[in-house]
C-alpha cells in the first residue's frame, strides 16, 4: 500500500475560527481502497477537517490533493465530481423528496446532467439504466420498502441510510462518513457498520470514518488517527492508538 501514491493527500491543514485554533498542521493520507478512522473527543476538529477536505471550508494553510492532482482551489461540487462523497453529522436530507428521488438526483448529478434545454425538450425523464442504478442502490442500502416515502416521514436511522445511499450513487473513490452511527440504536448501528464494511471491502471504496462508537470503528477501519484540540496526537492501528498514553489522556482526562 505504501508503495503507491495516496488517493487523498492532505498536508499541514490549519484553520482558525477567530481566536480558536480548530486544526493545526493536520496531515491525512488515504490510499486507494483503504479505510481510515478518525477518532477524538467532541470539538477535536473532526468535522472541520471533513469540511476542509470536501471544500466547504477553506483552510488557512496546507494543501489537499486527490488522485495526484491538487484540488485546493476547487469548490465542493467540483470535488464531488472527482469522486469525493460525504455524509453529514447532522442529517442533511432534502425534506420534500422521496428516498427514490434522493438517489435519482445523485445519479443525475454524477452524470453532470442538469441542462435546462434538456428539461425544456422533456428529455429529463429517468432512463432505464438510471432506474436500474437507483434500484440496485435501494436494495443495497435496504431502503426498497420505503423508496416512495418522503424522507420527512422517515426515522433517523433510515435518513442515515438515505444519506449513505445518496453518497454512494456518486460511485465515489473516497467516501467520508461523519459519525454515521450518531443517534442510532445498537441494531441500526450494526446494520450500518456491516454496510460500510461491505462497501469498502467489496467495492473497494476508500473511506474516512469519523466515529465515536469504537466497536464500529474496530470493525470497519484498517488504520486510525486521533485528533485532540485540532492536533493529531496518534496514528496507527486502532489497537495501537488506543494504547497510546496521549490518547488515553485525551479521552479519559488529565488524571488518567
Amino acid at each position: 500500500m505504501g508503495d503507491h501514491a495516496p488517493l487523498l493527500d492532505a498536508r499541514s491543514i490549519s484553520i482558525h475560527f477567530g481566536g480558536l485554533r480548530a486544526l493545526a498542521e493536520v496531515s491525512v493520507q488515504v490510499y486507494e481502497g483503504e479505510s481510515l478512522g478518525i477518532v477524538g473527543p467532541n470539538g477535536a476538529g473532526k468535522t472541520t477537517l471533513f469540511n476542509c477536505l470536501c471544500g466547504q471550508l477553506r483552510p488557512d494553510n496546507g494543501s489537499v490533493s486527490f488522485a495526484g492532482r491538487p484540488i485546493d482551489g476547487l469548490p465542493s461540487y467540483r470535488r464531488a465530481r472527482l469522486g469525493i462523497a460525504r455524509t453529514f453529522q447532522r442529517i442533511e436530507v432534502f425534506p420534500e423528496m422521496t428516498v427514490f428521488e434522493h438517489l435519482m438526483v445523485a445519479e443525475r448529478a454524477r452524470r453532470g446532467d442538469g441542462r435546462l434545454w434538456k428539461d425544456l425538450l422533456n428529455l429529463g425523464r429517468p432512463r432505464r439504466d438510471e432506474l436500474e442504478n437507483v434500484e440496485e442502490m435501494l436494495s443495497l442500502v435496504g431502503l426498497s420498502d420505503v423508496a416512495m416515502t418522503p424522507v420527512a416521514a422517515l426515522s433517523l436511522g433510515h435518513c442515515r441510510l438515505v444519506e449513505l445511499g445518496r453518497a454512494l450513487m456518486l460511485q465515489p473513490r473516497l467516501l467520508m462518513a461523519d459519525e454515521p452511527s450518531s443517534g442510532l440504536d445498537t441494531r441500526e448501528t450494526q446494520v450500518l457498520g456491516d454496510l460500510l464494511r461491505y462497501v469498502q471491502r467489496e467495492r473497494s471504496v476508500a473511506m474516512i470514518l469519523v466515529e465515536h462508537d469504537l466497536d464500529m470503528v474496530a470493525r470497519v477501519v484498517d488504520r486510525a488517527m486521533v485528533l485532540d484540540f485540532g492536533e493529531m496526537v496518534a496514528e496507527g492501528t486502532l489497537r495501537e492508538v488506543m494504547a497510546n498514553p496521549e490518547v488515553r489522556r485525551a479521552y479519559l482526562g488529565r488524571g488518567a
Binding site: C54, Q56, P75, S76, Y77, R78, A80, R81, A85, R86, F88, E92, V93, F94, V105, A106, A109, R110, G112, G114, E163, R166, A167, M169, L170
Partner: peptide, 9 residues
C-alpha cells in the same frame, strides 16, 4: 450543503 456535496453547481 448536501446538494453541493453531490456535485450540483
Amino acid at each position: 450543503g448536501a446538494a453541493a456535496s453531490l456535485g450540483i453547481n
